[in-house]
Simulated assay, not measured.
Amino acid sequence: MTEPNPYADGEYTWGPDQRAGAPGYGYPHGTPAYGYPHAAPGPAYQPTLPGVPVPPQHPPMAAHGGAPLLSLGDITVVGDQIITPAGPMPLKGAVWNAMDMSRTEEKIPAAAIVLAIVFFIFCLLGLLFLLMKEKQTTGFIQVTVTSAGRHHSTMIPATGPDSFAWVMGQLNYARSLSM
């Protein structure tokens, strides 16, 4: 025996229900007070509205066992797969490349020039401040991976002159995993 729907006539009111024994806040009998279903929905649960098309869903990625072995930018190696934003690729037979697009400049800082001028007035030792140098690295290191006909590229910011050596160490480890 089913209960008649008290809200079938379209008069839905917010706030506590005034009927005796009603669960409160305008929800019909048989639903929890906060509107959640009795059982937790499974992975296929997709709330839908009538007349609104459901967007296509990507198939769920297979569960990857273990912790990430390597991560370069948005490329991550987990188990026997390479995970990228475009989707997983097989690790076996992957080709890894890196290109250094960074540069390191060496220049005299402005403070050294000011100190050299100030101390030049007092003694000639102020010229030693012009020997001060600072190195500044700018740019990126591009890492690309190709596997099973798919290609992904990421840019890693160069933070120092040794950034490319660090990336190449990580890349050589990825190459050893791909064999």
Rank of each mutant, 00 (worst) to 15 (best):
W96A: 00
L128E: 13
M155P: 03
M1E: 14
H152L: 02
I83S: 02
G21I: 03
P109Y: 01
A116V: 01
Q170W: 04
P90V: 00
P32W: 11
A20Q: 07
I113Q: 07
A39D: 09
P28T: 08
D162L: 06
K135Q: 04
G87D: 03
P88T: 02
N172R: 08
A62H: 04
G126Y: 02
L115K: 04
T154R: 07
P43M: 00
H29S: 11
T31C: 03
Q57A: 15
P53C: 04
G66M: 08
M155K: 12
E134R: 02
L128S: 10
D9V: 07
A39N: 11
G149E: 05
A110W: 07
T48L: 15
L49R: 14
A98S: 11
L70D: 10
S176V: 06
L115H: 09
Q57D: 12
A33Q: 09
A63P: 08
T76I: 08
G160C: 01
F120T: 15
G169S: 12
R175M: 06
P85T: 12
G169P: 01
P50Y: 14
T48E: 15
S102C: 11
G15P: 06
L171G: 03
D17I: 05
P32Q: 14
H29L: 10
L131F: 08
G42M: 02
L130N: 07
Y7G: 06
Y12T: 10
R150P: 04
I75R: 13
T76G: 11
L124T: 10
L130M: 09
A165T: 10
M155Q: 13
A174C: 07
V118N: 10
A174H: 01
S102A: 13
M168F: 12
Y45K: 11
I82G: 00
A20H: 09
V167M: 00
M168T: 15
Y7M: 08
G73F: 00
D162I: 01
S178I: 01
T13K: 14
G65A: 10
L115A: 10
P41S: 12
A33F: 04
A86P: 14
G93V: 06
K107Q: 08
G93K: 00
P16R: 11
P56L: 13
Q46I: 14
Y7R: 10
V77Q: 07
M132R: 12
D17Q: 07
P90S: 06
H38A: 14
V95L: 15
H58N: 15
F129V: 01
R19M: 01
E105Y: 10
E11R: 12
A39K: 12
A63S: 10
W14S: 15
S178R: 04
A111I: 15
F119Q: 04
D80I: 00
L124D: 09
G93P: 04
G15M: 10
Y36G: 13
G149K: 04
P60K: 09
G26I: 03
S176H: 11
P53I: 09
W96E: 02
I141C: 04
D17M: 05
V77M: 10
E106A: 09
A158S: 05
V143I: 05
I141P: 02
P28S: 05
P55S: 12
L115C: 06
G139L: 03
F140Y: 12
